[in-house]
Structure formats: structure tokens, C-alpha cells
Design a protein around this nucleic acid. Structure first.
Lengths: 341, 341
DNA sequence: TCATATAGGGATAACGTTTGCACAATGTAA
DNA sequence: TTACATTGTGCAAACGTTATCCCTATATGA
């Protein structure tokens, strides 16, 4: 059996209250006693049982991190490790730990969240995606637990704390970037339409075209679900159009990698024949061939701020549900080229 | 305040023991009472406090997953999401949940493990890497907690349960594959030498050369740490050798992607000028340009089996510390070519 | 001298469960 | 009728902490 506070108390010849106070470095205990108790703790290799502590303190020092359900194609993205890195960084700093959702299907995921929250296993929750009619978010609101969404909520925007990029603007910037290079026929290739990011970016793309009096052509709007064959198909459709696009906006760099390959397969060169700009600026953008001009959404920072916001919400549950917009920046590399008129 | 078992008991006019028994579907309770209590539970929206349960049952139904420390470059790999997917799958099935390590440095990581294990927050631990002189593993052994390593332990192989590929053999296969295509000058580019995988693969590579009476040339052995510039540098060094290699074995497909770009940068084509085979067969291999011939190490399966083994160890702590070798398979794509003599 | 702070630490009631034991009510066998 | 299982339920002791209240010296001030 593990060594408990009682064992320490007995061996140190003090009460368990004293040991507990030493643990929390209470000023009510003399330095002498502290030193003595600490020595015994050391000797016995004692470590507090955090479940017991959670039980009485009604707090777990743990946040629940909800990823997309694991059957989703999007979990392959380099987004996950990087955002986790940002979250870890903060959690480590504030001495919080992470409980990860394991749901395979959306329903599993929901049950998982239920268990975490109702089971009092977490003090707050961080949802790494945003989509319409998400039962998870509805439940979180109702449960009153502190939580933040990484992404823009689809409703109750004022009641929910969130951390996001301004994806509409970012997409406008990206599109504008291509337009400035002289491109007029620009395609948009998104990923999973279920999630809000994709919609926001599409909206930005369209607004930018409108603002520049360019025609919005439905045939230029596609999506790929991180699947090679699908990518080949989409590129085929796009490039065999009577008037094919000369540039593309991609919402993810893994998809951009696919597009790069698909274009090469039909003998088209980037950026000579087609310019490509993508979102995320993850490692992939930096190392592909050609290297991708990419909208840096600062994934680490997103995770960092999101985690920080959750912890702040936990510590001040009645504080304003503030939302944070992380700036984006276009990182120019080798995948875009000026149109020769 | 949250609704507790007492509230349910009161409202249902039964004792808390009865409610508890209904919760665990004990045969000692009549169907009638069960139905009634369940209805009350539903009405009140009651859900057991899992901390309290953990405390009395001395079990958490949670496993701790230890990644490499988050400052490590390797966390960018597509390995993480995929292995997490495998782990999630199993955890979900067995109703376990995941607590993730958050350590940024190696020391942080160690403290994190200490906290998890000593704090009784997990029933078992899954270590996602293997390296020499790892205090984490030493501690896990000493603490007697069930744990498994994903990778080959550097010592105490018989006392530690692990799940791994046969990396030596896999590397031999990969090398042999190139040799069969007629290559005689083969380079090896690993990643972080700190971890055991890299060493095993290097060993396999060298053994294969030996077995084929090919010279092992130190200048052909390099490594890249998921960094573009480093990759460019390494490729430069390699290809400006008096006798440059005609083929390469890479230990990671993200690194292979870098190599692809670096080669292209100096005007060399894959597979025409240089053949490339890599490990992991993650999404990247499938979508790069050219698509990479890759050793499929079955990442999902690794995660799946590792998690399953931990849970088995938890349920039967005295069972043999069995180890599992997940088979590998070369997936042929477009990055290797027969040498024209 | 007495009254009164004050510092240091002990007892004990929570926290929300599970579970071994006791026990009442009912059924069954002799 | 008595004795004894059987079935269903309640009581209360754990689990390992924290936190509130309380007590006892000793020091301080008048």
C-alpha cells in the first residue's frame, strides 16, 4: 500500500493537519517543524494523493482538451502536435495537467466530454474546433464549466470565450495577395466543410473577389479531405475547365502538398503555371517542393492563448468571456508568381 | 453545488448504498428498484464523481501517455496524431481515459510523470519513445506501476513490456530493397540520435551493407532534425562527395520531404538521379511529389497494441511482461528506381 | 500580578463514493 | 409450527486529503 499522510504524521510525530500544512507551506507552521516534516516526507517518498485532494478541494488542476473525433481525417494534420505544444507549454507553467478526449465517433466524443465534466475530472475544457450545432458546446454552456473554443463559435458569440484568427480577413489577405500578383482566375480549395474555419475562409475569399470586381465562379470552389486521389480528381476537374484557374487558395498545407503533387502529375509547374497559397504555415509549408507561400496562423500561439484563457476562466469564473484574435501573417516562399499579362 | 449520490438517494427514498449498487448494476437490487432509481438519476441529471470513486476503488481508469518533451523537434511529426488515434481507439473501447504529459523540457517531463504516478492519477503509463538512461523509465520500474514502452527498451528488456517494430530488420529490408535495385552507394539519414529507433535503423542499415559486402562509409551517414536548412546542408555535403550516393534511406518521412526539396533545389531528380526510401509511411509519404516508397511501420497499430498492452498489464499486474513486434512492410511508390549499370 | 495576544499545532468534520456486514421480510422445507 | 435459506436493502467504515475550530503554551502590556 502506498504511503499516506498518516504515515508521515506518525513517523514525524505530528498530526496530519501539520503535515498537510507543511505541504501547502502554511505560515502557521514553524520553520523547524517544516524542516523536520519535509525530511520525513523525503525519507518515506511520500506524495499526496491528488484524487483525495481534488475531492475535498473541489478542483482538479486539470483541463480537458477536446480534439476532433479521432476517426476524422483532419487529425492527420500537423496542426494537432503544434497546438498541443502550445497548450502543454501553458499547462506546465501553471501546473495544470491535460486530459485528452478519446472519442472515435462524434457520439463517443460527446460521451467522453460528459464523463470528464460530470465526473468532475476537469476544471475547464478547451475545444479545439468549432462547428455548427455541436452538442458538445451546447452541453458545456449548460454545465456552466469554464471553457474556451479554439475557433469562432457559431452562436452565442458573446457568451463564449474563444481564441481564433480572423479567418475571413486572413483569407481576404491571401486572395488579395494573389490578385495583386495579377491573378484573376483564382480557385479555392477547402477541407472539411463541417468546421467553421473552412466557411470563414471561403467567405473571406469570396469577399475579396467581390471587392475586386472579380467573378465568383462556383466551379472554382472545391474541397479535399486530406486524400491524394481526391486531390488528383479535384485538380483534374479544375484544370480541365474551359478557363482554368491560374492560382489557388488552400485552407491547409497538407492539402496544398497534395495539390502540388497532383499538379506535377499533369505536368503543371508551381509557381510557373499555377500559383498556390495555403493556410497554416506548418512544417510542411516550410519543407515542400516548392516551399509554400503560406498564411501563418500561429498554431502554437493559438494553443498557448487558448489554454491560458481556460485557466483564467477557471480562476475567475465570473470574468468577461473575452475573445482573442491571434494575428496572421503571410509568409512568402516559392509557390506564387506574378502573372505575366 | 452538483448533485450527489445523496440527493438521488433522498429523492428515490432509498439508501445511498442502493443507488451505488444501481450504478454498478448489482444483481442484489431488484429490477423494480433499479428502474425507479435510474429514473431519479435521469431526472436529477446525476453523474458519479469519479474522483471519489477513484479514491475508494484505488483505480482511475486512466492511462498516462508520455510523449517526448514538447520542445523536441520530433513532436512535429505526423507520428503523434496517428499514434494517439490508435491509443484513443483502445481507450475508448475499454472505457479508459488519457492523461497527457505536458513537460516542455526533459526535467519537466520527469516531474510530470512523477506527479501522475505518485499522485495516483493513472493506473498505468504508456511511454511513446525509448532512449538510453531515461529517468522516466527507471522511475516507472521502481514505482511498480504497469507501463509499456513504445519502442525497444535499452535495458531490462525482459522486465519491461514493450511494443515495437523490428527496426533492425525493417532497415535491413529497406536497404536490401535498394541494393536489389542495383544501388551500391547508399546513404543513411537518421533523425534524433538520442532515441533508440534511430540507432536500431542505423544498425540494420549497416548490417545489410555488410551482408552484401558493401563498404560502410561514414560520410554516407548523416542526420537531419526536421529542419529545412539542415537538410539542404546535409544533401549538399552528400552530393558533393567525390563519389556521391545514388540512394538514401531516411528514418522519417518528414525528413524525406525535406530531402526531396533539397535534392530538387540542386537540380537532382527523384528517382531518376537519386532513389529515396523512408520510414513511417504516414500521410506525407502518400502525398509527396514524387510519392515516397516507404516502410510502413503501422503507427496506428503501434498505438493500438501499446495501449492494449498497458490495459492488460493493469488488469493482470503479475502477468508476463510480454513484448509485441508489429510487422512492417515496404510500400512501393515512386521514389525508387532501378540503377542502370 | 493579571489579562490578553499570539504563535504553533491538534481533533475532527467534511468531500462523494464503494463495500462488508447486518438485518428484515419473505419463502421453503421439515 | 419451527428452522433456515434467500432476497433486497440499509448502516457505517473506509479511501486520503483539506480546512474549520479549538486548545495550550509563551510572550506582551499595563
Amino acid at each position: 500500500m502506498a504511503v499516506t499522510i498518516k504515515d508521515v504524521a506518525k513517523k514525524a510525530n505530528v498530526s496530519i493537519s501539520t503535515v498537510s500544512r507543511v505541504l501547502s507551506d502554511s505560515p502557521k507552521i514553524s520553520e523547524k517543524t517544516k524542516k523536520h516534516v519535509r525530511k520525513v516526507i523525503e525519507e518515506l517518498g511520500y506524495h499526496a494523493n491528488l484524487n483525495a485532494r481534488s475531492l475535498v478541494q473541489q478542483t482538479t488542476k486539470t483541463i480537458g482538451v477536446i480534439m476532433k473525433h479521432s476517426a476524422s481525417e483532419a487529425v492527420h494534420t500537423t496542426f494537432i502536435p503544434e497546438v498541443l505544444r502550445g497548450i502543454s507549454y501553458v499547462c506546465n507553467k501553471y501546473e495544470y495537467s491535460i486530459r485528452l478526449s478519446t472519442g472515435e465517433s462524434e457520439e463517443d466524443l460527446f460521451q467522453d466530454v460528459l464523463k470528464m465534466v460530470n465526473g468532475k475530472q476537469v476544471d475547464g475544457v478547451l475545444v479545439l474546433y468549432s462547428k455548427k450545432d455541436d452538442p458538445v458546446v451546447d452541453y458545456l454552456i449548460q454545465s456552466q464549466i469554464p471553457f474556451v473554443i479554439l475557433g469562432k463559435p457559431t452562436k452565442d458569440v458573446n457568451k463564449i470565450a474563444y481564441v481564433d484568427n480572423d479567418n475571413i480577413h486572413a483569407a481576404m489577405d491571401a486572395t488579395q495577395y494573389l490578385i495583386k500578383l495579377g491573378h484573376k482566375r483564382i480557385a479555392f480549395i477547402g477541407d472539411d466543410k463541417k468546421y467553421e474555419v473552412t466557411n470563414a475562409r471561403l467567405a473571406g475569399f469570396q469577399q475579396s473577389l467581390l471587392a475586386n470586381q472579380l467573378e465568383i465562379c462556383d466551379e472554382y470552389i472545391k474541397n479535399i479531405n486530406y486524400n491524394y486521389d481526391e486531390g488528383v480528381q479535384v485538380i483534374h476537374e479544375l484544370m480541365s475547365l474551359p478557363v482554368p484557374p491560374t492560382a489557388m487558395v488552400l485552407t491547409d498545407d497538407l492539402n496544398a502538398l497534395i495539390v502540388l503533387s497532383a499538379l506535377s502529375k499533369i505536368g503543371l509547374k508551381v509557381p510557373e503555371d499555377v500559383s498556390v497559397i495555403c493556410f497554416n504555415n506548418s512544417t510542411i509549408s516550410r519543407v515542400s517542393n516548392p516551399r509554400l507561400t503560406s498564411v501563418d496562423i500561429q498554431i502554437f500561439q493559438l494553443g498557448y492563448e487558448a489554454a491560458k484563457t481556460v485557466i483564467e476562466q477557471i480562476n475567475e469564473p465570473n470574468a468577461l468571456k473575452k475573445s482573442l484574435i491571434i494575428p496572421t501573417k503571410i509568409v512568402e516562399r516559392d509557390s506564387c508568381k506574378k502573372m505575366i499579362p
